[in-house]
């Protein structure tokens, strides 16, 4: 009975999320709210993919934007050059390119751990940034790619903002379901085992380097999908999307929200975009607020908002 109730409320919640622009159509700020929510969800997907590495497998990547950006560029180039506007093709291209890049970089970095892994991912992402910045004929260099057309799904034009929103929110739900399944699967437990004691995992017969690589590629391709959604949403891709700033933002989201949980990165994405989009119009020091948040959570609440909430909930029930 309790299970049925849980599923029912989850389904209602999901439907409410996906139809947001339709039931808020009468609101004065519906357009704005839809846009902000859309961007939150894009970044939530990105942060969730990073958390698969950081929170689940214990691989602190500071170069995750490389795959977000690769997906964004791939989607942009696919629509502009390949003459197709079919969503499965462009989104598939984004996921594929990001996964291929993750395979390449991952092969070189997965044997390192901790701070070394972090520095190596940062360094490789900077190389990707430099390529994006200088390969003008494909990426548009410092101008980026502007005017990216939104795709079609069969005969459905996804150009109208509310449809674009539905695409993003539906993808978000799919990614949440996927990562939830992964977290509960044998594979998810293996990742936790590697995070907690890689040496023992090797001694148990797990090829941990390859498993870490598989997580890196999976996370990279999901980040690529987030990047593609960002490219469609904003109709624009720039080298910033591959830059260290984007990697850091995702890391802030994961850390502030709470690593190793599904809700954490989503809450983190909401907090960061609230600060950047809404608070920044009131106080022009959004970066400082983010920096302070980051410092505060590292020092005081390493478990993030979800961790604080969980502890408070446990206290209340006692």
């Amino acid at each position: 009975m309790r299970r049925v109730l849980l599923w029912a409320s989850a389904t209602i919640g999901a439907a409410t999320l996906v139809t947001f622009p339709y039931w808020t159509a009468e609101w004065e700020s519906s357009r704005f709210a839809t846009t902000v929510l859309r961007d939150i969800l894009v970044f939530a997907i990105f942060a969730l993919s990073l958390d698969l590495l950081v929170g689940r497998a214990g691989m602190p990547s500071l170069g995750h934007a490389a795959f977000f950006g690769a997906g964004a560029y791939a989607a942009g180039v696919a629509t502009q050059r390949l003459g197709t506007d079919q969503l499965p093709l462009t989104l598939g291209a984004a996921a594929f390119v990001a996964a291929a890049l993750a395979l390449l970089i991952g092969t070189l970095v997965v044997r390192s751990e901790g701070i070394f892994f972090l520095m190596l991912t940062l360094a490789f992402a900077q190389i990707v940034f430099a390529i994006a910045f200088q390969w003008t004929s494909v990426t548009g260099g410092s101008n980026g790619l502007a005017g990216i057309a939104r795709p079609f799904l069969g005969g459905i034009d996804l150009n109208p903002p509310e449809r674009m929103y539905v695409l993003v929110s539906a993808t978000f739900l799919a990614v949440v379901l996927l990562l939830r399944a992964v977290a509960g699967s044998p594979y998810g437990r293996v990742l936790v085992g590697i995070r907690e004691n890689e040496r023992r995992m090797r001694a148990l017969g797990y090829d941990t380097a390859r498993i870490r690589l598989s997580a890196f590629v999976l996370a990279g391709s999901i980040a690529g999908i987030a990047g593609a959604l960002s490219a469609y949403s904003l109709r624009f891709v720039s080298a910033q999307d591959v830059g260290i700033g984007t990697s850091i933002r995702a890391f802030v989201m994961v850390l502030v929200g709470g690593a190793g949980t599904l809700a954490g990165p989503v809450i983190g994405a909401a907090v960061v975009l609230y600060v950047e989009r809404i608070l920044s119009s009131a106080v022009p020091v959004a970066e400082t607020v983010l920096g302070l948040l980051f410092v505060a959570f590292v020092l005081l609440a390493r478990q993030g908002i979800v961790g604080i909430g969980g502890a408070a909930w446990a206290r209340m029930r006692r």
């Binding site: 992964v182 699967s185 594979y187 437990r189 293996v190 936790v192 085992g193 907690e196 023992r200 598989s214």
Partner: peptide
């Protein structure tokens, strides 16, 4: 595996034979 239950510790060893790629 410090935070995992005793049962999970053992299960990780058991499932090594079945392979890790069960998503």
């Amino acid at each position: 595996f410090a935070p995992l239950a005793a049962r999970e510790n053992v299960a990780l060893a058991v499932s090594a034979r079945a392979g890790p790629y069960r998503f």
